[in-house]
């Protein structure tokens, strides 16, 4: 049996057809009713996704497909994680309306943070901690910069946490704050932290960029580094963290150039998480 639903996660609407109820039941724990809709929408759908079992195949694997474009096969226990990766893949691969930086984005009292970082640097953990201490989440993965206005548009989705990060969050807050644990993915164990109510409420509201912070958790250091980055270096570091900088070519260069002039770049290397959070809280 096929379950159909719409994920109206601005600025993109996804129409999803999947076999059975498993995926939909898991997503209900992570997305509010206003975003995860079972009734047909009157709005235009950006991406039509099939995530179904192949009835001709003897295996029970599900295939994530955007039209004829195949992303990945997976078994039932990992449906959720492959689905979330699949949405990231669709946006990263097929939209060039925005300059898309691989970064978390948060906002509080008009101050915004862009946190670009390679996997393993603790970006998502820091992003989750900031959100749970009052920052509004715009995205954990996609910083969507509008080339026309320079504004950053939210793409609110659950925060994906890996391995040790899950334990860190559960210890700091409550045992079940990270939900839908998926073990044995190729990235290890994955869990999801639902965005706060404020993040969902403001999911259509863009922000002006203020700070770009490159976070790096390093348990071996004794003193936290919180230092500025020169504009030229900031430009290059952001460029290598973009999904579509080279595709956007001149538009990408202009957009990133404007962004770099608007923000303050900071390098943050820390072992003491509370100190890192305090330093960020003092930004104005």
């Amino acid at each position: 049996m096929t379950t159909s639903f719409v994920l109206a996660s601005a600025p993109f609407n996804f129409q999803v057809n999947t076999s059975g109820h498993t995926l939909f039941d898991q997503l209900k724990q992570l997305y509010p009713h206003s975003v995860l809709q079972t009734t047909p929408t009157n709005d235009i759908i950006d991406f039509q996704i099939d995530f179904k079992k192949n009835w001709l195949s003897l295996s029970q694997s599900y295939a994530f497909k955007l039209g004829q474009h195949h992303f990945r096969m997976t078994d039932k226990p990992q449906l959720l994680s492959v689905f979330e990766w699949g949405l990231n893949w669709a946006v990263s691969s097929y939209q060039n309306r925005y300059l898309c930086i691989h970064a978390a984005v948060l906002e509080k009292n008009g101050i915004s943070l862009i946190l670009p970082a390679p996997p393993g640097s603790g970006k998502s953990t820091l992003c989750a901690l900031l959100m749970l201490t009052g920052w509004r989440l715009l995205s954990d993965e996609h910083c969507l910069v509008d080339p026309e206005t320079g504004l950053i548009w939210p793409f609110v989705r659950p925060i994906s946490l890996k391995n040790r990060s899950i334990a860190v969050l559960n210890q700091r807050f409550s045992a079940n704050i990270v939900q839908c644990i998926v073990p044995d993915t190729f990235k290890g164990t994955i869990g999801y932290l639902p965005p706060t109510a404020e993040s969902w409420q403001l999911m259509h509201q863009p922000i002006q960029p203020s700070y770009v912070i490159f976070p790096k958790y390093n348990a071996d250091i004794t003193a936290t580094e919180f230092s500025g980055i020169e504009q030229s270096q900031l430009f290059m570091q952001l460029a290598v963290n973009c999904f579509n900088y080279t595709v956007l070519a001149e538009v990408g260069f202009e957009t990133l150039g404007r962004l770099v002039k608007q923000v303050v770049g900071i390098r943050l290397e820390y072992a003491n998480t509370d100190e890192a959070l305090q330093l960020i809280a003092e930004l104005d």
Partner: peptide, 21 residues
């Protein structure tokens, strides 16, 4: 045309321009 459609046509245009270069 609706803005949502523009998003995707523009994405296609950007990709084609990149391929041209």
């Amino acid at each position: 045309i609706p803005d949502k459609v523009k998003t995707h046509l523009y994405s296609g245009y950007i990709y084609a321009q990149k391929q041209k270069v």
